[in-house]
Amino acid sequence: MIYSFIFAFIVGGLICVIGQLLMDVGKLTPAHTLSLLVVAGSILGGLGLYEYLIDFAGAGATVPITSFGNSLTGGAIAEAEKHGWIGVLTGMFEVTSSGISAAIVFGFIGALLFKPKGTID
């Protein structure tokens, strides 16, 4: 069990380092960086490689935004297997709904509870 934490730490940290390199060396904005990582996760998912990463690193692979691309692709492919062409469109959000729905709900609640603050400390 302790190893799963270490692997999650290392793999998750390395994915973030790739993101940092894209921002610092590639001069990309955060939005560009995250979009690129999502596309990368989606392609790795399509090749069936992201599954191995999740088996190995657990949350180290499911928490970074790359996993969002992977699960969108996973959902689309799973439905495509069952229903063919139509499934590509309908299956997409089957697996990933939690991230988006949580962000929407907590975004709404956050707007109810908080005010933006421009403090430095």
């Binding site: 940092q20 921002m23 955060p30 928490v63 956050g110 707007a111």
Partner: peptide, 20 residues
């Protein structure tokens, strides 16, 4: 930097900060 932007919490932060 990317250490807090790349995990899904960064996605949450992007949505929630814009909402607030």
């Amino acid at each position: 930097g990317a250490g807090s932007a790349v995990p899904v919490s960064g996605f949450g932060n992007a949505v929630i900060s814009a909402s607030i």
